[in-house]
Amino acid sequence: MMGESMALPFWLDALIALLLLSGALVALLGSIGLARMPDVYMRLHGPTKASTLGVGATLLGSMIWFGVGHEGLSAQEVLITVFLFATAPVSAHMMARAALHRRVACREGTHGEPWDEMDRLPGYAESSSSSDNQR
């Protein structure tokens, strides 16, 4: 199945291997963070940074692999990478806000006061406080 990969120059082959391996390791670190951190807010950190970068590195390795001598560079891979980096912070922000809104407790010893008015949307201060009362 991978017979032609012998045709790659050694340093390029090594670079791709390095990217794939380090990408997998970094993504695994992100997932370990997700599994072992004690509260929701701390769990958010692993996936948003590490997993995004890990998958990004894997995609870069695959781009080089396909770009050099195989089917040619696939534009969709570029698109997936850009899309992942653009959306990861947005989904992290949305999840953090949902957790704040649901008043999910943060671990003991957390500095600072998260809840005051921060779980409400900008510009919807009045309407959302009335719906809070109903709950």
Partner: peptide
Amino acid sequence: DIVDRILGLDTLNVNAIA
């Protein structure tokens, strides 16, 4: 919490792409 489950699913998606 439900938010944890959403976070798990989201990370699962990202890893599935890889």
